[in-house]
Design a binder for these strands. Structure first.
Lengths: 101, 101
DNA sequence: AAACAAAGATATGTATACAGATCATGTTCT
DNA sequence: AGAACATGATCTGTATACATATCTTTGTTT
């Protein structure tokens, strides 16, 4: 199963976002509502999460899972590449805010 | 767990993409390497797929799963809104309709 | 040094995503 | 009308995502 590559790619992205946010694995796991061993497996690419779990983890890290038409991927990558999340650390939304002000 | 809403949102997106591509559930299932009953459950939001399975299904439909920083979501949505169907079958998804049935 | 915190890792048990088979309910055609 | 096709739906069994507990390792701090 060459899906291992995808798992590793996702995991690396999560790890980068987590370190950028200054959070521990345990903190992200709790924010996402999963256990630390499970988050570790996801971040290291050792196991695949469910789509819903990945969405919760992503939100805990300030990311949103989206399905992008393939022909728009280069454009989206351009949006992503020049800048990363503002380096201002120290707070991350919770999974499923449910309400907006 | 109101993750049911997320499941239905994803499923509706897959269904729109599938119909726009003129594919049957069975064709998408085969392209994605899963069974038809499983694809049906995913498309109808009856069950959550694994992240890897969702990626395979998305690719079969010309979509790519991406993790987008939340502050960039509006910009990406703008990219998505004007066009989307690439060629043959003319069907243009609306900005965010509910569900069709 | 010891103490602590964060991450790596394994084991056991449960929930659920999967395959494959089967049957029913529409649709849309000659 | 039937026939072919697409979808909805349920069942049995297997693979794996999950929780929880425990232990080790590495890195940092006093």
């Amino acid at each position: 199963m060459p899906e291992t590559a995808s798992l590793h790619t996702i995991g690396a992205q999560l790890r980068r976002a987590r370190l950028a946010a200054g959070l521990t694995q345990e903190q992200v796991a709790e924010l996402a509502g999963i256990s630390r061993p499970r988050y570790r497996d996801i971040e290291t690419g050792a196991a695949a999460a469910r789509a819903t779990t990945l969405m919760n983890v992503a939100r805990a890290l300030g990311l949103e899972m989206m399905l992008i038409p393939q022909f728009l991927v280069p454009a989206v990558d351009t949006l992503l590449s020049p800048e990363s999340g503002e380096d201002a650390p120290a707070f991350v939304p919770q999974p499923e805010p449910d309400d907006e002000r």
